[in-house]
Amino acid sequence: MQMYNSPYRGVLDCVRAIWQKEGPAAFYRSYTTQLTMNVPFQAIHFMTYEYLQELLNPHRQYNPSSHMLSGALAGAIAAAATTPLDVCKTLLNTQESIALSTPSSGHGPGQGQGAHRHISGLAHAFRTVYRLGGLQGFFKGVQARVIYQMPSTAISWSVYEFFKYGLTKHQLNKRRTQHMEAEK
């Protein structure tokens, strides 16, 4: 559905067509790539958020602006760092015709065979992206990905911190009340 000039009228049409043409395995084509991307994304995201909280909010008080700024920057950095994996995942998912029809330039398996019928696996996707766009090809769409992630992660962290604060405050008040009743 995200491809330029997508031939599908909607999500159900897309699912039906892919199921008929390629079978159920097509829906899991980039699953390992997705996992390969999500693990470093989340690691970078959480480490960056915690580091920024140490700088901006060292006493770890409820501070919505520091939570939002830290969350937005953490999401931006994680998104930028994992964009090469996202580009490969998108290529595996879409199997874009330009990548399939461009003759091989002698990189990797199948040298000199011309067009590939199917891009399979992360290594093949990496070779294809490099063949088509060089190193800068791995960062196609980095700005869009960062712009998408920043508000998303800012909102997520601020909501998380809000509920953590609310629940912690509620538990603290409950303990105080129980302690005061016990002293009576």
Rank of each mutant, 00 (worst) to 15 (best):
L12Y: 12
R29T: 12
Q34V: 07
C14V: 01
V11T: 12
P24R: 12
W19H: 14
W19V: 02
A17Y: 04
A17H: 10
P24H: 09
V15D: 05
L12K: 11
T33N: 02
Q34N: 06
K21S: 09
E22M: 03
Y28F: 15
L35W: 14
Q20W: 05
A17R: 15
V15P: 07
R16A: 13
V15F: 15
K21Q: 14
L35Q: 12
R16D: 14
V11I: 13
Y28L: 13
V11N: 06
N38D: 15
T36E: 05
F27V: 00
V39D: 02
C14G: 06
V11Q: 07
R9W: 04
K21D: 14
L12V: 11
T36R: 06
A25D: 13
T32K: 09
R9I: 02
R29V: 08
V39T: 12
G23A: 03
Y28T: 04
R16W: 10
G10M: 00
P40R: 04
A25T: 09
K21I: 00
P24V: 08
L12I: 09
K21W: 01
K21A: 13
V39K: 08
A26P: 02
Y31V: 03
P24N: 06
R29N: 10
N38F: 11
M37S: 04
M37Y: 03
Q20G: 01
V39S: 07
T33F: 00
Y31T: 09
T36K: 02
D13W: 03
L12D: 13
R29M: 08
V15N: 05
L35R: 07
G10Y: 01
P24S: 11
A25H: 10
A25M: 11
Q20H: 09
G10D: 15
G10R: 02
E22C: 00
E22I: 00
L35S: 13
V15L: 15
P24L: 10
I18S: 02
D13R: 05
M37D: 08
R16F: 10
C14A: 14
Q20N: 10
Q34M: 09
M37T: 08
M37P: 00
C14W: 15
Y28M: 11
I18C: 07
P40L: 05
G23E: 03
G23N: 06
K21E: 14
Q20C: 01
A17N: 13
V15W: 14
P40A: 04
Q34I: 04
P40F: 06
D13C: 03
W19T: 07
P24I: 09
R16L: 08
D13A: 11
D13K: 06
Y28K: 06
I18N: 07
R9G: 13
Q34S: 10
Y31N: 05
L35G: 15
M37L: 14
K21L: 05
G10C: 10
Y31P: 00
E22T: 00
L35F: 14
P40D: 06
N38K: 04
A17Q: 15
R16V: 04
A17F: 02
T33E: 05
S30H: 10
V39R: 06
